[in-house]
Design a protein around this nucleic acid. Structure first.
Lengths: 238, 238
DNA sequence: TCAAAAGTGTTCTTATTACACCCATGG
DNA sequence: CCATGGGTGTAATAAGAACACTTTTGA
């Protein structure tokens, strides 16, 4: 039985070269208040008019890591984004057009920095709060959950925010970012103590303007210290 | 340009269904002294007589997670192993027979528990110390490195050993296991203090026999405590 | 009696937690 | 003058790091 399956495989390797491969991108963004994700509204079948992760098929002569960047740019206009692989989904029935195995990639971007625009076969591109995502096309809810899970884990082992926040930000914004990812409230004093002790922040002599309360001091990231902590790792206990 | 690539894709989706998909298994074992990995010596082209990870192509009607278990059993006789996905490798030139994207799975087993035997198209199956692995077939060295990296990371976030050690073991064996994975020496007293404080070990009234030194006490894992700590996670600082 | 690994505690330092009030601004 | 979020410190507890000598066995 086992022997046979291997033998028949060797006899007819061609039979195996009938799958397609795709990539799907899970792009997280933060608007200073909420964690959001970049979705497209599909303009074609299958799943016409469903919201979906930006994703598409990989060319035969294209590395999968390269495909992730290309597909993201083609569908949303987002360019030059560092994408990291998360997980591969390969259940038999996951795509209606045939056997398609897909690999999910994720990234973090600052929403204000990027300009998204829908491309052909895409009706809309939009930032949707992670907590409000409804039914997506294909098995994309499962893929999103996997990527959000990875983000949650990651945030405890290295600093985050450089990619998600504007160049100048307040400590409260940084804290809200952590709270949206961890889905849990943090103590303000302990959070500040921890962040400031890591030497990844530079205190500016600038403050918020036009807010109806005491204006908050602005900070920026210290790129050198930030990189050092990313390499070394740290433990972010709550 | 971008528009065109998407349009041509829609016009001819069939062109994309020409890839194959494979799985490769990275099985770590521990013999009480050294961390080892299960390799096969290939009995056919390509890479005839090269050592390789046990891996093979996935059937069109087979989930990739299922394929990993099947392939491992077919090639090595190893059965009923819990395999976890690690990473997917999809560079264009990685397989000489065509476009093959592969997903790596890994597992931990107790070498003494399992009986491996080579199957058809496999000349040998063997346990090789991780530190002595030479040139492997395909891009399998890269895949092994990725999986070893994952194991190293994992060991700091949850207890390990239940899968790798015999039912009864000494604390020194457990420490050597951690040291082989972390590739770093640990302090004996601190290691014991930490392990014993986690309530995952049961002290037995049995001791090593026939050793030319003071015989060590034997322990077994407390399955309930172990599972609890696996769920909760812990921080293993060195 | 020697070699080899087992076994055992304390001190110091660092990190984590819990917790409450005054401040500056716009409306 | 009120509502809103900004900003600040300390004490108690827990976790981690460093470190050396005695014990038991087989050869």
């Amino acid at each position: 039985m086992q022997l046979q399956s291997i033998k028949s495989q060797q006899a007819n390797v061609k039979e195996f070269f009938k799958m397609a491969f795709s990539v799907d991108c899970v792009i997280f963004g933060f608007d200073g208040n909420e964690l959001k994700i970049l979705l497209i509204k599909r303009g074609e079948e299958p799943f016409f008019e469903f919201w979906a992760l930006p994703g598409n098929l990989v060319y035969l002569d294209e590395n999968i890591d390269d495909a992730a960047g290309r597909v993201l740019t083609e569908l949303t206009g987002l360019d030059n984004v560092y994408l990291e692989q998360v997980e591969t989904f390969g259940d038999v029935g996951r795509h209606p057009l045939g056997r398609v195995v897909t690999t999910a990639y994720y990234s973090l971007v600052n929403i204000d920095d990027v300009h998204v625009h829908p491309h052909s076969h895409v009706e809309k591109v939009g930032w949707v709060p992670v907590s409000k995502v409804k039914q997506l096309a294909f098995d994309h809810n499962k893929i999103l959950d996997a990527c959000f899970g990875k983000l949650k884990k990651m945030v405890r082992g290295r600093p985050i925010g450089f990619e998600l926040l504007p160049p100048k930000f307040t400590l409260s914004e940084l804290q809200r970012l952590y709270e949206s990812i961890l889905e849990q409230e943090l103590d303000k004093r302990n959070f500040r103590k921890k962040m400031l002790s890591m030497n990844i922040l530079i205190e500016l002599d600038e403050y918020q303007e036009g807010v109806a309360h005491r204006p908050a001091r602005l900070y920026k990231f210290d790129e050198i210290g930030y990189e050092r902590i990313v390499q070394e790792g740290f433990s972010f206990a709550v």
